[in-house]
Design a protein around this nucleic acid. Structure first.
Length: 123
DNA sequence: ATCGTGACGAACG
DNA sequence: CCGTTCGCCACGA
């Protein structure tokens, strides 16, 4: 069966790791970038998730990824921050509302992958 | 190969 | 506590 997700190196790793974020936890773009093998590719992570189709997004917990401040930072009109907040709360993650933005408490919810897994997939 | 894009991040002012 | 700028770099056109 053909996979529809991007199979180019980085994107593949990004999706791989994003899928591994446990329920009830969140990761940052920078963290995913690091796990995917490039600390400086945080922007690509956002971009990579942005280009996914609805069908692909069903399989990938894109909403568990926030920026380093813990802020929901999607600019996608369809998969907007309100939707993301809703999905996160559904998993028991508290979302703080600050001004016009939504924030996650990273101290509490940040996913800390095991070093073993980490080494496995380093490029 | 070059260039614009971007859901980032850190550093400024 | 804003907004801006710059550095980062894979990807698609």
């Amino acid at each position: 069966m053909k996979r529809k997700i991007r199979q180019t190196n980085f994107c593949h790793n990004i999706y791989y790791w994003t899928k591994r974020i446990p329920k009830g936890k969140v990761a940052t773009y920078g963290l995913i970038a690091y796990l995917a093998g490039n600390v400086y590719a945080a922007r690509i992570v956002g971009w990579a998730l942005h280009i996914l189709s609805d069908e692909e997004l069903k399989k990938i917990p894109w909403y568990r990824v926030v920026n380093k401040e813990g802020r929901i930072s999607t600019t996608c009109l369809k998969h907007n921050k309100l939707l993301q907040k809703k999905l996160l709360e559904k998993e028991g993650i508290k979302v703080k509302i600050k001004k016009n933005n939504f924030y996650i408490d990273l101290k509490k919810y940040l996913w800390l992958p095991k070093m073993k897994d980490n080494i496995t997939k380093r490029v």
